[in-house]
Design a protein around this nucleic acid. Structure first.
Lengths: 353, 353
DNA sequence: TCGCTTTTGTCAACCGGTTGCCATAGATTG
DNA sequence: CAATCTATGGCAACCGGTTGACAAAAGCGA
């Protein structure tokens, strides 16, 4: 009974017909083929290889597809080709607002180009991150790593498998999207210098954070240029809580202005200092990084070096998709501009009363 | 030169061997079968049907799988079964912090149970939402809709296809997770009443928002109970900006306390009122909803009715996964508690100076 | 009108698991 | 010890597109 053709059948008297439809599950290219009176492979070509079939047949097939309300089965397509029209995005912490805009930028670009975004979180752990990355690798066409904690070699290993784009970090041999901190930082430091500050602190982020190192470098260089003294303080974690905890060190350091690794730290620091009766910015100026959601909720609103996070997400997605479609070269770093957003938390030092 | 096999090789004389490995692509169950000396179908059973094969064979196969570093091909599995170990989450706005915790809750639960989360955004549009939902439906096992804008009938239609769970809205016949507003609201209103307020306003959210309607109902009922006068004001959009815009109406309404549909509106409103020189809470009390990230960044920090958003996300994911695994009944609504978070933006009215 | 190139459609073999059905071997029972 | 049952592994047909090879058809110049 494996004989699919019935030599004597007058009409479609489907017996053990292989691709018989019973109106139950979704229509397939076989159904379309039957309706349009062509071979299934012709349908496949019409639907995915523009120009491969004649305009006439194309139209015929498209009409049949529309009539049947056909939708390709992504798995059936993925099985032989490996393509899934999907890419993964791994962030360190979904509730960290730094990533919100990155996620949105990537999602928007994905949808725009008919891709689906798969999201995973690493919970700030390098091993979780790598596990998630490996897991995703199986089902996506490419991967975006936002502020990855994994080391360079592992990232390169992933990148050998499928296209990978890194955000907020530079990895040799892997395409990256990083905010160029210099412009924003020098604006910030110049502004502080102009307001009479002479000694500033930088509150660093996680020790393995590539970006934290870049920012500290930038701050130190800018301070040198402006002839300010710069000191570096460590934080326990890059959160509001971490900011509160570092307040002691900040006061002890005797600086009149602070730049922090990120806005969260800045906000926590400001809260703690204010709780201790210190007036911002009269007694101390505070400058954050990133301009996250909520940075302007504080009183005074936070001065910060804005990174165009949405742009980073969108840029990384674009880079990845271009890579997937064979356009453009594999490596290279995309730099996006940063700028100072001057709000109320920084300004002129008032003489002590 | 496309001939990879040498027909005269002495060993491993794979002829037109169907599942010949060349060490290139990923190992398959056929490779395992060969190594373990069993049939591929036995491998399949050993790997996915616990108990179907003998312990001895099981071990044999597992060892071979480990040795080859085998990973199932999700597409090959999905094709015949339809199962993908994936579910979708659609939110109205990725950058709205209300959804952050929902996303995290869902993601955490997903990872915990070996599922992958696919995220999509509807950009607050009912049609985009439906499109995204339909698109996702093809590739996921189930769907979570957070604060959907689509109408009930369309949601039910989706739910007929695959399991759907709704957050922040009740849809007859579809399992839902909703914060039970009453406890939090009555706490809030009682607190206002105790502080001498007699007339409060509720700033509503989007007109199609089910949750906004519930909250207004809750506020009105609680006010009636506490013998307060309640008025309802409309907002243009449920954002910080919308909050700023509604400030005029709030002042015109002559109330001394305001509850807003969400924290974003509350924050915007507070900013605008403060900019006009009004002191919060001395001259007006403000209470938000949700307790989003950043609600405590403001000065004074925002009093708000907290919804356990993370719990909602996790609960919805759990509900969905249980449904997918045949446990539990299809419908029913999961209610989570809300509570008042008393911070500085509400309190006793000071007599006008 | 004929041979030659270019389209265009068909055939069939995949991609890699899953699963119903069946055969066999070992266990159980009378 | 024969008869029956059950646990286990094998066979082969799917799931639904994709694609290389090829043949039929069409276009075209001489």
């Amino acid at each position: 009974m494996t004989e699919p053709k019935k030599p004597d059948a007058p009409a479609a008297t489907g017996r053990a017909n292989k691709h018989a439809r019973d109106g139950k599950s979704n229509p397939t290219i076989y159904d379309i083929a039957k309706v349009a009176g062509v071979n299934p492979s012709t349908v496949s070509r019409a639907l995915s290889k523009p120009g491969r079939v004649s305009a006439k047949t194309q139209k015929l097939i498209e009409d049949a597809a529309a009539e049947l309300n056909y939708q390709v089965n992504p798995f059936a397509r993925a099985l032989p080709t490996g393509r899934t029209n999907t890419f993964g995005l791994i962030v360190a912490d979904i509730t960290n607002p730094t990533f919100f805009d990155i996620i949105r930028g990537a999602e928007t670009t994905a949808t725009l180009r008919d891709y689906t975004l798969v999201l995973a979180e690493s919970a700030e752990s390098a091993v979780t991150e790598l596990t998630a990355a490996r897991r995703l690798m199986a089902t996506v066409d490419g991967l975006i790593l936002a502020s990855p904690r994994t080391d360079d070699d592992n990232i390169r290993a992933l990148a050998r498998d499928k296209p990978v784009v890194v955000i907020n970090r530079e990895v040799e041999g892997v395409p990256c999207v990083v905010p160029d901190v210099n412009k924003g930082i020098s604006e910030a430091v110049r502004s502080l210098a102009a307001n009479g500050h002479t000694k500033v602190a930088f509150v660093a982020g996680p020790s393995q954070s590539w970006m934290s190192a870049r920012r500290w470098e930038g701050v130190r260089a800018a301070c040198e240029w402006s002839r300010l003294e710069a000191v570096r303080l460590d934080s326990t974690k890059p959160t509001v809580d971490g900011g509160r905890q570092v307040a002691r060190d900040v006061r002890a350091s005797g600086v009149t202005a602070v730049l922090t690794y990120n806005d969260l730290l800045a906000i926590g620091l400001m809260q703690e200092l204010q709780a201790a009766g210190i007036v911002v910015p009269d007694q101390i100026s505070i400058v954050g990084f990133d301009d996250i959601f909520g940075a302007d909720f504080t009183t005074p609103p936070l001065t910060t070096v804005r990174s165009p996070l949405g742009e980073c997400g969108a840029g990384a997605a674009t880079l990845l998709l271009d890579l997937l479609h064979g356009m453009g070269e594999p490596a290279g770093t995309l730099r996006v501009e940063t700028e100072l957003v001057l709000r109320g938390s920084s300004g002129r030092l008032l003489p002590a009363r």
